[in-house]
């Protein structure tokens, strides 16, 4: 706070409402009742496994969207 030099550029920030989207991939993979089931199976994978694999894609999509929307 007590820096003597004045910053040459105006105050920056990376605040953006888009950042709230990142809450989804943090919370959803932790909701065990959502995926702790055997059926329906997909290619022989119980739901417990294929749905958690699908959450990886959810994470990729949300971080990509937030990156694109917040890029200056």
């Amino acid at each position: 706070m007590a820096e003597p030099e004045s910053p040459p550029t105006p105050a920056r920030s990376d605040r953006s409402p888009w950042n709230w989207l990142l809450v989804i991939p943090i919370v959803v993979p932790l909701l065990t009742p959502l995926f702790n089931h055997d059926s329906p199976r997909l290619w022989g994978f119980p739901m417990f496994y294929w749905l958690q694999f699908a959450f990886i894609l959810l994470g990729v999509v949300t971080t990509s969207v937030v990156y694109r929307m917040t890029r200056r």
Partner: peptide, 15 residues
């Protein structure tokens, strides 16, 4: 299999 949700949620946190 906790390793999978574990390695999903680190990236938004890193971000």
């Amino acid at each position: 299999f906790f390793a999978v949700p574990y390695t999903i949620i680190i990236y938004p946190i890193f971000f």
